[in-house]
Computed example of a mutant assay.
Amino acid sequence: MSNAVKLYQLSRKVHKWAGLILSVFFMFIAVTGLLLVYMIPLGVADELRTGKEASPSQSIPMDKVVSIATSQGLPGVTSVEDIFRIEYRPSANVYQIRFNNSQGVQIDASTGKVLSTNPDYSTFLITLHDGSFFGNWYRYSALTFAGLSLILLSFSGYYMVGYPLYKRLMTRKKAKSMENIAKLSNKDINK
């Protein structure tokens, strides 16, 4: 058996088993990614509200945003440490505050009026999707392994598709050469 055939068979085995094992990771990332894309229609996240039209220079200071957000009486929210992220959305003139416990508050950036206090599970989904929910060990080991394996799967897939095409091309080329040699031989014989 030639080395090329052995490499082809090895590529098939690596591709099959790596793909099978990693399909769990890829499925998890795909499902959480789809949930993030469709989180508003699915009711997982609160729809962005619109604040009073004003320029960014008229926005209330950050300490006031934190004070307003933490004073809404939301379960499990008592201090700034409970805040996961604060986003300023200039197109809507809104501060969007997301808490560690999937609570959310939207505040008009210029008036400080609370526009919404609905639950927002997008933070939870984001941490699941990027792996930070499981800790840095998962992000830097499992996801790195999955990414490198995806590269390996790509190359083994290219080889599994490319090798048979190359072999067919070479066989046709060889057959064409043999056919040309036969034609030349027949011409020599007929002369």
Rank of each mutant, 00 (worst) to 15 (best):
D46R: 03
D46E: 09
D46Q: 04
E47P: 12
L48V: 15
R49A: 12
R49I: 02
R49E: 15
R49P: 09
T50C: 02
T50L: 08
T50Q: 13
G51Y: 03
K52Q: 15
K52N: 08
E53P: 03
A54D: 02
A54E: 05
A54L: 06
S55Q: 10
S55E: 13
P56R: 02
Q58D: 13
I60N: 02
I60L: 00
D63S: 15
S67E: 14
I68F: 01
A69D: 01
A69S: 11
A69P: 01
A69K: 00
A69V: 05
T70Y: 08
T70M: 09
T70N: 10
T70I: 15
Q72F: 01
Q72N: 04
Q72C: 08
Q72H: 07
G73M: 06
G73N: 08
L74N: 10
G76W: 13
G76K: 07
V77G: 00
V77N: 00
V77A: 08
S79A: 15
S79D: 15
S79V: 07
S79I: 09
V80S: 10
E81N: 12
E81F: 04
E81L: 10
D82F: 05
D82A: 06
I83L: 06
I83H: 08
F84P: 00
F84Y: 12
F84N: 15
R85L: 11
R85M: 14
I86C: 06
E87I: 09
Y88Q: 04
Y88F: 15
R89M: 14
S91T: 07
